[in-house]
Design a binder for these strands. Structure first.
Lengths: 218, 218
DNA sequence: CCCGTTACTGACGGTGCGTCAACAGGTAGT
DNA sequence: ACTACCTGTTGACGCACCGTCAGTAACGGG
């Protein structure tokens, strides 16, 4: 990326872009910054300086610092969701494995972005949390569709279990996706098995054929 | 809590406390603030005003804003760990259930504190992350001890699985501990079963006696 | 070439972080 | 009690960043 649209520390050259172009440029800089620093550390003035514009312009486009952060995290989130869209043509089990495999690949290639999105879930700004939560909701929906296709019943506890499993998957990906000691295929297989096992643990009365339960429930 | 150590908006009265007392007081205010606002929203000046002292004094005790945050989150974390110390006298399975039951109770009673600690895991400050990670490490150790006692082998993937299960448990607690639609006992039972199931999913070759696996492993 | 639209600037006020020399409350020695 | 020391504590300062707004200049159309 060129440092700016004018000579390096030379004269401003004052280029006038269309709103879409400018917005896109600022967002691209923001997502790039996300690979080296957390969301909260991104300042309006830093983005403005990197784009060669005044801070005021950034406020013109995003309103507030939080507005900027929100737009940045949304961009990163959408990239993640686009990369992990399930293939509706596949049967349930294959679909799950396919999504998990692509997810592992995505995290391996964009681990900094993934980290930032996951960490955004704990942001102080409710709107940022909501944005990340939306990503989780989408993933939860995909996963729930799979387990329902496999014969599980939906209960409140099963919903909790699926959401909780998403967290498990996030943590496992953060831990192991870039860890060479664990092959990707093994990680994918573990995630696949754990998803089914966790749902089975939440729905002990389900009639799935291959999860026999002992009489140890409370 | 008295608003301060002087008359309400009256004259400062300038009480001189011992460093321990003052530090403790500031920390107590900080942990209390944590129940209504996220860590990053806690400002030095707010704490100072609540204690009836100058902002400079807070810097004297904690150095920086981050130092204050770190001390606050450490205090909250220690309270959580203290409440969930396993009872070494119990056998593995009972020990797991006992810890989980007390964990659910703790979250029900201090959900705001728990939220803040969990969210601290995604803080921008590495030291805060490290602090929360330490709590997870302790919980991971307890859990690993249980599953090893139950006959599981330790492999890199099992370690990943246990850490990931901690995230699952955190998420399930955040979701469901204060949800009246799901009885505590059921939640505890789910967490217990899911722990064993996730470890089994990570170590398909283990010889655990009471976790029968169907031929669904990949 | 000029004129209007609007992307963009620059100067300003406010808030919170962090520093430092100086001040004052407590206490020990006489 | 008086004094002198130690140290908990202050208040004023510099700085970075957020957010606002009236004004300016770059592009497109006539």
């Amino acid at each position: 990326m060129p440092p700016a649209l004018h000579g390096p520390t030379g004269r401003p050259h004052r280029k006038r872009l269309s709103p879409d172009e400018r917005r896109h440029q600022l967002l691209a800089i923001g997502v790039d910054r996300l690979t080296t620093q957390p969301l909260e550390a991104i300042s309006v003035e830093d983005i403005a300086a990197a784009a060669g514009v005044s801070p005021g312009l950034v406020f013109h486009y995003f309103g507030t610092r939080q507005g900027l952060h929100l737009a940045i995290v949304r961009t990163a989130r959408d990239a993640m969701l686009a990369a992990t869209q399930p293939d509706p043509a596949l049967p349930a089990r294959e679909r799950l494995r396919d999504v998990l495999a692509r997810f592992v690949t995505f995290v391996q290639q964009h681990d900094a972005t993934f980290h930032s999105v996951v960490r955004g879930a704990a942001s102080g700004d409710p709107r940022v949390r909501e944005t990340v939560q939306h990503a989780r909701d989408v993933l939860t929906e995909h996963t729930t569709a799979v387990v329902v296709d496999l014969g599980a019943q939906r209960t409140p506890l099963v919903d909790v279990a699926v959401r909780a499993w998403i967290s498990l998957a996030e943590q496992a990906l953060v831990d192991a996706a870039t860890d060479t000691a664990i092959p990707s295929a093994e990680l994918v297989a573990f995630l696949e098995r754990s998803a089914l096992a966790v749902v089975a643990a939440a729905a002990p009365t389900t009639t799935t054929p291959d999860t026999p339960r002992g009489p140890d429930a409370v």
